[in-house]
Nucleic acid binder design. Structure first.
Length: 546
RNA sequence: GGCCCGUUGGUCAAGCGGCUAAGACGACGCCCUCUCACGGCGUAAUCAUGGGUUCGAUUCCCGUACGGGUCACCA
């Protein structure tokens, strides 16, 4: 076979060589040990948790003085969605992930571009041509039906699926046959001529999993699709070589095609990057685990967390505890430190698929928010509300003092309250402070209903003085509790319920319901001061006559 | 079916030949307490399994089971 003739027949317009590209994309001038990595999403418009998960590469890169970039894998035109690149960048920016180079919303930055694969067609074809020249690639004119028939035949014969051996119809065809098909205008793909043997295993050093032993690839997989655009496998190898990527961080579902990738790196004589296969996030489905699914699980979408208002940093805290087994310990020891101060290590990443635990996420978010200042929380809530709850944003801006004070209730000190872990919950929790959104949702305690309701609230209103300290306030509540025949100490009431009408809990909860609309709310005295005297009295009186 | 990865309490997990097998979330109980939340103390709960190797295996090796992933001109 005259491979030169074939190469020129297939790629008449390609004049560059691999060496030319080696010059165009020289090795990066970086310190020893610098990590160059990336995220490489396909522009489907769906940004998922895994994209953020793998953006952990940013920390690795920046920890080592390396580079973190964004590459767009747009080789599948069918799946491309308008505005998808912007969506990825927007989501990453929101979570504080910054790219040193790569695609931007309206272009790109960096010396190793283009960073959109479809614009790199010439490069792929150059590499492809060199493989043809070396007799390591050939065109295949099989139709979809041919391949389907092959698959069925293999299924029936209980043989391995794939294009190999006797099933590799075009592997050894003559150049005349090829020319004939070409002349007819038949569509073709370029396949890799694999010399691999399924009996052989290849060792790959995985940055997370250690030594991996995988079966050598023996199939003639597709390098270039019929439109001349590469498959993921070929594009990945070419790009990560010429973009001088040192670490490829990706989901473990790529483990299955790893043999193809290393085979390509090896035959091209290029150094393999350090592969880092992360564990897939799982979910409980009935009694069995399964991969988070785009269709079924809203929590796979990154937007889910943003919309629900889980604070960005807290979301990272959760992700890091799942990702890196020694992070949680570090965070417990340094609760106020920025997670970026943590030295991230690949070896400590987990290898088995973790169940996504929303409860733990919530706990981490509550803990995180409880440590923030009222102003920080106010700003966070407002930023979220501007996007997801404009009415709330408007109210917050009109009554910012009220909202700041409300957020400040129970904050600070050794035991701050942890009432909410996300902005959506915060909005609901804080709603009673604002007269515009105040509603009564709970009923008052039974032991303080009926005529006692009048009596308690009247007595309370009479005694109420905004000049009182919290201690004085509570002392007065105790006095009226006793006067009205309730037990000041709940324990005493529990012991001898027949001696009292109820306990102080009934009294305070009545006041609480009148003031907040619910039985579960923070300190009454503090709330009253946030509401102000006029509003406090108004609510108490309204409830008395309700 | 082939290939690959994985398996410590309900969940996330520490462990890297010798430990009463950490810790966190959750659950439960008690305490604190004007409710709730917080906080404090405590309880229950884990090495999938069978063989090796070894004086000794959660830890190393092999098999089995189970779970997951993947077998496209999708990434």
């Amino acid at each position: 076979m005259d491979t030169t003739a074939l190469a020129n027949l297939l790629f008449p317009d390609i004049t560059k060589t691999i060496e030319d590209y080696e010059t165009i994309y020289p090795p990066r001038d970086l310190p020893e040990g610098a990590v160059v990595t990336r995220i490489a999403p396909s522009p489907t418009g769906f940004v998922h948790l895994g994209n953020l998960y793998n953006a952990i590469g940013e920390r690795l890169a920046h920890q080592t003085g390396g580079v973190f970039y964004l590459r767009i894998e747009d080789t599948d035109q069918k799946r491309e969605v308008e505005g998808a690149v912007e969506a990825v960048i927007d989501a990453m920016t929101f979570y504080g992930v910054h790219f040193d180079e790569g695609a931007t919303a309206d272009g790109e930055t960096g010396a190793y571009g283009p960073y959109r694969q479809r614009q790199r067609k010439e490069l792929y074809q150059t590499v492809a041509k060199s493989l043809v020249l070396r007799g390591l690639a050939y065109p295949c004119f099989c139709t979809e039906d041919d391949l389907k028939a092959m698959h069925e035949q293999q299924e029936a014969a209980k043989e391995n699926y794939g294009y190999y051996g006797k099933y590799a119809l075009w592997r050894d065809r003559s150049i005349e046959d090829i020319r004939a098909e070409l002349d007819k205008g038949t569509e073709w793909v370029l396949r890799f001529r694999s010399e691999g043997n399924p009996e052989h295993t290849v060792e790959v050093q995985d940055g997370i999993r250690g030594t991996l032993k995988v079966q050598e690839n023996y199939t003639d997989f597709v390098l270039l699709k019929s439109d001349g655009i590469p498959t993921y496998h070929f594009a990945h190898v070419c790009d990560d070589h010429f973009m001088r990527t040192t670490h490829v961080i990706r989901d473990e579902s790529w483990l299955a095609t790893l043999p193809i990738h290393v085979q390509l790196f090896d035959t091209l004589g290029w150094a393999r990057p350090v592969y880092c296969h992360t564990a897939t996030l799982m979910k409980m489905d009935g009694s069995s685990k399964r991969k988070l699914s785009k269709r079924k699980d809203p929590e796979l979408a990154l937007s889910f967390y943003r919309e629900a208002g889980f604070p960005q940093e807290a979301t990272w805290l959760y992700l890091l505890t799942v990702l890196n087994s020694n992070f949680e310990e570090w965070h417990l020891a340094n609760p106020d430190a920025d997670s970026r101060a943590f030295t991230f290590s690949l070896e400590k990443m987990s290898t088995s698929g973790a169940l996504f635990d929303l409860e733990k996420l919530d706990n981490i978010c509550r803990e995180y928010l409880s440590r923030q200042s009222a102003d920080t929380v106010y700003d966070g809530l407002l930023a979220w509300a501007e996007q997801y709850d404009p009415a709330l944003a408007a109210r917050m801006k009109a009554k910012s003092d009220l909202y700041r004070a409300a957020i400040g209730v129970g904050r600070g000190g050794d035991k701050p309250r942890k009432d909410y872990g996300n902005w959506r919950d915060a909005a609901a929790f804080l709603s009673f402070y604002d007269a515009d959104t105040f509603t009564i949702t709970d009923s008052c305690p039974e032991n303080a209903d009926g005529e006692m309701r009048q009596a308690i609230l009247t007595a309370y209103l009479d005694s109420l003085s905004f000049a009182d300290t919290p201690e004085e306030w509570f002392a007065k509540v105790k006095v009226l509790t006793e006067q009205l025949g309730y037990a000041v100490q709940p324990k005493k009431y529990k012991k001898n319920p027949e001696l009292y009408k109820g306990s102080i809990v009934d009294v305070t909860n009545l006041i609480r319901v009148a003031l907040t609309g619910r039985q579960n709310a923070p300190d009454i005295c503090e709330i009253s001061h946030v509401l102000g005297e006029a509003e406090t009295r108004r609510r108490l009186e309204a409830y008395m006559h309700a």
